[in-house]
Simulated assay, not measured.
Amino acid sequence: MKKAVLVTGASSGIGAATAIEFSKNGYFVYLMARNKDRLEEVALKCRSGASLVACDMTDMKALDKRINEMLTAKIHRIETIVNNAGIFARHSTEEGSDELWQTQFNINMLAPVHLTRAFFPYFKTQGGGQIVNVSSTLGLRPQGPTSAYSAVKAAMVNWTASLAIEGGPFKIRANCVCPGIVDTPIHHFHSLEAEQKNAVIDKMKSLQPLGRIGQPEDIAKAIYFLGSEQSSWVTGVSLPVDGGINLL
């Protein structure tokens, strides 16, 4: 049975790069996101095969249906799930509404918890599995008016440690990647005109000891390491992949 990985938020950015990275290494990829057209574009780049799982992860009934389809198909052995889907918001505690906080929690935390909880019995039955959560350096050290996002991403870091403890006896590993500033659609500068975008990125370079912002592929390689047998004796880790920005 061919090994497989499930990547959420796989239609662009870090998720798309992660799907392609796993595929390069022989994994069949389940691509989960809302935009089916963009998923199809990513699937064409997955040389080891891919299946589209078009789903709004905040719709729990739809999510449960998709999960059940994957877990009962028995076509591939799903060895890894990557909880990457998320949204970013820049608001202070005072400015952020209850709705904003609830949305941040639902998408960035509750949906990954729901998905992971569903896969735990599956991983136990097959004798192990890998969970990789995508948090943020803001979950390690908040900066600026990002209180809701930072708080939820910090919760993901803590949850990862809990998962590692709970899953250890069943050979279920859980690790977390904490990206810094990466050129993906989650950031406003990603879609600016070229001249404006380059100006913003040039300013950001000064914040990075390594002198550049990240690319999705930088994060994808770290996710692959933690989600594959390359890291077979690693669990409970929250790994910053940030060009050293948290050192300053």
Rank of each mutant, 00 (worst) to 15 (best):
M1F: 12
K3H: 07
K3C: 07
V5M: 02
V7E: 00
G13E: 00
A16F: 06
A17W: 00
T18I: 13
A19E: 00
I20F: 04
S23C: 11
K24F: 02
K24V: 13
G26A: 11
Y27K: 04
F28G: 00
L31V: 09
M32E: 01
A33C: 14
N35F: 15
N35H: 04
K36N: 12
K36G: 08
D37Q: 10
L39E: 00
L44C: 09
G49H: 06
A50P: 03
S51D: 14
S51T: 12
V53Y: 00
T58P: 06
D59Y: 15
M60T: 13
M60F: 15
K61P: 07
A62G: 09
L63S: 06
D64E: 11
K65A: 13
N68L: 14
E69S: 10
M70D: 00
A73R: 07
H76A: 09
V82N: 00
N84H: 06
G86A: 02
G86T: 01
I87Y: 02
I87Q: 07
A89D: 13
R90F: 10
R90Q: 12
T93W: 14
E94H: 09
E94R: 13
E95L: 11
G96F: 10
G96W: 01
L100K: 13
Q102C: 14
T103F: 09
T103C: 06
F105E: 03
F105Q: 02
N106Y: 11
N108L: 09
N108V: 08
P112D: 08
P112F: 05
V113W: 10
T116P: 05
T116A: 10
R117E: 13
R117N: 14
R117C: 08
F120D: 03
P121H: 12
Y122Q: 03
F123Y: 10
K124L: 04
K124D: 09
T125V: 14
G128K: 01
G129P: 03
G129F: 05
Q130T: 04
V134R: 00
V134I: 12
L138M: 08
R141W: 08
R141G: 07
P142E: 03
P142C: 07
G144L: 14
S147L: 04
S147D: 15
Y149K: 07
S150C: 11
A151R: 07
V152Y: 00
N158D: 14
N158K: 14
W159F: 15
A161K: 06
S162V: 15
L163M: 07
A164K: 03
G167E: 12
R173L: 13
C176R: 03
V177L: 11
C178G: 06
I181T: 10
V182L: 12
I186E: 03
H188P: 04
Q196N: 12
V200I: 15
S206W: 09
L207N: 14
G211I: 13
G214C: 02
D218P: 11
I219V: 13
A220K: 00
A220D: 01
K221F: 15
K221C: 10
A222C: 15
Y224F: 15
F225E: 05
Q230C: 14
S231Y: 14
V234W: 03
G236V: 08
S238Q: 05
S238M: 12
L239V: 04
P240H: 00
P240C: 04
D242W: 00
D242S: 05
D242K: 03
G244L: 04
N246F: 10
L247I: 04
